[in-house]
Simulated assay, not measured.
Amino acid sequence: MKILLANPRGFCAGVNMAIESLDLTLREFGAPVYVYHEIVHNKYVVESFKAKGAVFVETLEEVPPGSVLLFSAHGVSPEIRRVAKERNLNAIDATCPLVTKVHLEALKYAREGYKIFLIGHEGHDEVIGTMGEAPEVMILVESEEDVDKLEVDPESKLAYLTQTTLSVDDANRIIKRLRQRFPNLVNPPKEDICYATQNRQEAVRLISSRADLCLVLGSQNSSNSQRLRELAAESGIDAHLIDGKQDIDKAWFEGVENVLITAGASAPETVVEECVDWICEAYDAEVEPVVIRQENVHFPLPKPLRQLSKPKG
């Protein structure tokens, strides 16, 4: 058996920045540090931070006034920022800069009098935060069917934005349908789906033709991980999204010669390594790294943390 180990995979620059931010905040301020929503959508990452003293909350009412609070990589709405200020919370913003870009685009289009279609998944933390920037002019669109149901004056000023972790193919289908209905539709000069999402999807698309089975490391609530599993399945191979080696089912490997392994942008490399080791031991497999493209993206830490990250001396 051969393991085709996709590269790029795993942590993106935004996830690295958010995780480093929470590590530094815990080190500097001590536990508890409150985090609004999961820092990233990964069970292992969240559990490891809980053990260090991070407290993940769904409402700011759960955070005692004056506490240290971290905003997760997925971003928050202006209303959440207002409540944090009202409660005198020491808020540190670890929003991914690529998500911030979409927020700023929403504000720009709203100021210019546009009605905005946001292509994304209802209930996702990122979508909730982005919609909160201009709720009165934003309409969530999840599918081509949603586009067909839209009741909007085609002569009005219309723009679209996208969640950063969507399937590129799905987003393009929805955008095509929107343009068919609304030919005057405008969009930002640079697309919103992030580089890491696109790169990981490209790797799965190119490598899956060589594989009989695909294992995607990532949690069920991770949008970009779900898209990787769907993409592999669309290529005609058996594909599973798993948190770690404990989720592997030996029945998947019957008649399998080549296993594609990748990881969503919030999945730690340690869980990838554990799965690779498990398969190598169970099936005497050899590993073939398959590099599709190099990634060298780095995002700066939030301003309050930048000095803390510098070596003392």
Rank of each mutant, 00 (worst) to 15 (best):
I3M: 08
L4F: 03
N7K: 13
N7E: 06
P8R: 09
P8C: 05
C12S: 03
G14R: 05
N16V: 11
L24D: 00
L24E: 00
L26C: 15
G30T: 12
P32N: 05
V35Y: 00
V35K: 01
Y36P: 08
Y36C: 05
I39T: 15
V40Q: 00
V55K: 13
V55M: 09
V55L: 06
T59Q: 03
L60P: 14
S67W: 00
S67A: 10
V68R: 08
L70K: 05
L70S: 01
F71G: 09
F71W: 11
A73V: 00
P78R: 02
R81D: 02
R81P: 04
R82Y: 10
V83S: 15
V83M: 10
R87S: 03
N88Q: 10
A91I: 07
D93K: 09
A94L: 03
C96N: 06
P97I: 07
P97G: 12
L98M: 09
L98E: 07
L98N: 06
V99A: 04
T100E: 01
T100D: 07
K101N: 06
V102D: 02
V102A: 03
V102W: 06
L104N: 09
L107F: 04
A110V: 11
R111W: 13
G113I: 15
I116H: 00
H121K: 10
G123K: 14
H124I: 11
D125H: 11
T130D: 12
E133W: 06
A134H: 11
M138V: 08
I139D: 02
L140N: 02
E145F: 03
V152E: 05
P154A: 07
E155S: 14
K157M: 15
Y160I: 07
T165K: 03
T165G: 10
L166P: 00
D169K: 05
A171F: 04
K176H: 12
L178D: 09
L185C: 07
V186K: 09
N187K: 11
P188G: 09
P189H: 15
I193D: 04
I193P: 00
C194D: 02
A196H: 04
Q198I: 15
N199I: 01
Q201W: 01
V204H: 03
V204Q: 02
V204E: 04
S209A: 14
L215Q: 01
V216H: 01
S219W: 08
S219I: 04
S219T: 06
Q220H: 07
S225F: 13
R227D: 13
L228Y: 10
E230A: 12
A232E: 01
I237G: 02
G244R: 12
Q246L: 05
D249N: 10
W252I: 08
W252Y: 13
G255Y: 04
V256K: 11
V256G: 09
E257Q: 15
N258Y: 12
T262H: 10
A267L: 12
A267G: 09
A267H: 01
P268Y: 09
P268L: 12
W278K: 11
I279S: 04
I279V: 14
C280Q: 14
E281W: 14
A282H: 11
D284T: 10
V290C: 09
R293G: 13
F299T: 12
P300A: 05
P300C: 15
